[in-house]
């Protein structure tokens, strides 16, 4: 018996297995689907039992050109930000994203207040432009999200998208839509394990299957609260492995969104002398945030910079091939 055998822990629970995207056989039009979860041990500890599925890398696509993204990020994306469909295409064909996270930012009243119908048209255009699965993310205003996402849900019916987010105060509309249209759901709970569970309880009480749920416990960027996210995700994974079924749900992290808020990623060389190359600094910040959260147990990581997304895919491959 090797030491790795001795180290093995017999956990009683597992993370549920979640498939995003529906191919023709499943009634959709996706050419590739994403399956995550199923782990029965700690992350990257295959002596506990190797997880059956890998970790997915998504890239963010906005429905309107982002205004205040720093130069190194904006330059890397280039002109494609003018069209969500082109942007999504580049993410999949050039940068290798496993799935697209479409942010309906323009539906926010301060960002153009786009109508549910306009948002649904964008969803359709992205679904037509790429054949990977889609995450559809609202503008985080509950009332507007309820209007917008229910229409988007219908527009994407049968494609088994991942929609979000629902919270403990606002979940009924979206749960009903996703049930009717065959989508998966993201439950949001800010760094609180009890609320995370509560959201899962409320959503499943409406008859929503647990294996179509993802938890978003909010993401802290490197240097800006990462340790809170890290520990919440570790605690969640341990609860799930201890057979708390309602915590055994895959986890999504908004890595790009948070990493690119950090001063260390955004600042120009004049603003932050001595911190290194301005064009690369943010890429490293995003990579480090992602690789740290991988270690805490993440299943879907949503990235922004093409180089960071590509590097993360390589990292995941290397970490899962002993």
């Amino acid at each position: 018996m090797t030491l790795l055998d001795t180290a093995k822990e017999r956990w009683s629970g597992t993370i549920s297995t979640l498939t995003i995207g529906a191919d023709a056989a499943a009634g959709g039009t996706r050419k590739s689907v994403v399956t995550v979860g199923g782990a029965g041990g700690l992350p990257f500890a295959p002596f506990d039992g190797a997880p059956p599925h890998s970790i997915a890398v998504a890239m963010e696509v906005w429905d309107c050109p982002p205004e205040d993204w720093p130069r190194s990020l904006a330059d890397a994306l280039g002109d494609v930000v003018a069209s969500p469909a082109e942007w999504a295409k580049a993410c999949v064909e050039k940068w290798g994203a496993d799935l697209i996270c479409l942010r309906l930012a323009s539906t926010h009243p301060d960002q153009g207040d786009a109508s549910p119908q306009e948002a649904a048209a964008t969803v359709r255009s992205v679904l037509e432009a790429v054949d990977v699965p889609l995450i559809i993310w609202g503008c985080d205003l509950p009332d507007k999200d309820n209007l917008v996402l229910s229409v988007c849900s219908q527009a994407a019916a049968g494609e088994r998208c991942l929609l979000g987010t629902v919270t403990e105060d606002n979940y009924k509309t979206l749960v009903a839509s996703c049930l009717a249209d065959g989508h998966c759901l993201i439950g949001l709970s800010p760094i609180d394990i009890n609320i995370a569970k509560q959201v899962n309880v409320l959503v499943t009480d409406m008859g929503f299957p647990l294996d179509r749920l993802v938890m978003y416990q909010t993401t802290g960027a490197l240097g800006y609260g990462l340790e809170y996210t890290y520990s919440i995700q570790e605690r969640g994974r341990l609860a799930a492995l201890g057979n708390d079924r309602l915590m055994g749900v895959p986890v999504i992290c908004m890595v790009g969104q948070e990493a690119w808020r950090a001063k260390e990623a955004r600042a120009t060389s004049e603003e932050l002398p001595g911190w290194g190359d301005e064009g690369e600094r943010g890429v490293y910040w995003e990579i480090a945030t992602a690789t740290a959260l991988l270690q805490a147990g993440s299943d879907i990581l949503v990235m922004r910079h093409p180089k960071a997304a590509q590097a993360l895919k390589t990292t995941i491959d290397r970490l899962t091939t002993v």
Binding site: L222, G223, E227, G276, A292
Partner: peptide, 20 residues
Amino acid sequence: SGPEQIAPILTLSQNLYTDP
């Protein structure tokens, strides 16, 4: 030894070794 390469590693250690 690029600062943009080392600073994130140091920051991660600073984060994770903070007493929760």
